[in-house]
């Protein structure tokens, strides 16, 4: 694929440019062109959530998004969340509640949890479970992840 499209977007707060083939996924762009490997490939078809990113504040599966669609948008990945101390509470909750085992699902879980808390700052147990329905985890059995999100929400104004 020789043809590429020049796009500009904000990546984790910084203006970014990339030349991407039109058929490329946002996931492949982030991992292979930009070199941010925190966002994971788990299935490539929207079923696992390992590739979750925020686009203009909405959580989406980056494996289903065309990279060219990033043009003009604000993209946030797990690395971007980690760089902002405002998200330490969420990350610490995952660590302290045991929400991380092999860790492969964790970036997607964290990004999705961030979105979930932006929608529901005081989520019910049920809202957390439903909010994570698009993120698979094979290790934890989800319980500690759900507890981590609940803990992160505690004390949020």
């Amino acid at each position: 694929m020789s043809l590429t499209v020049e796009i500009r977007f904000t990546l984790n707060g910084s203006p970014t440019r990339a030349a991407v083939p039109p058929g490329l996924t946002a996931l492949a762009m982030l991992r292979d062109i930009v070199g941010l490997t925190g966002t994971k490939y788990g299935c490539g078809e929207g079923e696992c959530g390992a590739c979750t990113i925020l686009v203009d504040g909405l959580s989406v599966n980056s494996c289903l998004m065309f990279a060219v669609e990033c043009d003009g948008r604000a993209i946030t990945t797990v690395e971007g969340l980690a760089a902002d101390p405002a998200n330490d509470r969420l990350r610490d909750a995952f660590v302290e509640e045991g929400g991380v085992q092999c860790g492969f699902c964790t970036p997607g879980m964290i990004v999705q949890s961030k979105y979930l808390l932006s929608q529901h700052p005081h989520p019910s147990h049920e809202q957390i479970r439903r909010g994570l329905e698009g993120n698979l985890c094979r290790c934890t059995g989800y319980k500690k992840i759900i507890e981590a999100v609940a803990k992160a929400a505690e004390g949020t104004p």
Binding site: G46, T52, S59, V60, N61, G131, E133, G134
Partner: peptide
């Protein structure tokens, strides 16, 4: 319908 992420897109 699907999951949060898919519903968003």
């Amino acid at each position: 319908f699907a999951s949060v992420q898919i519903r968003n897109m």
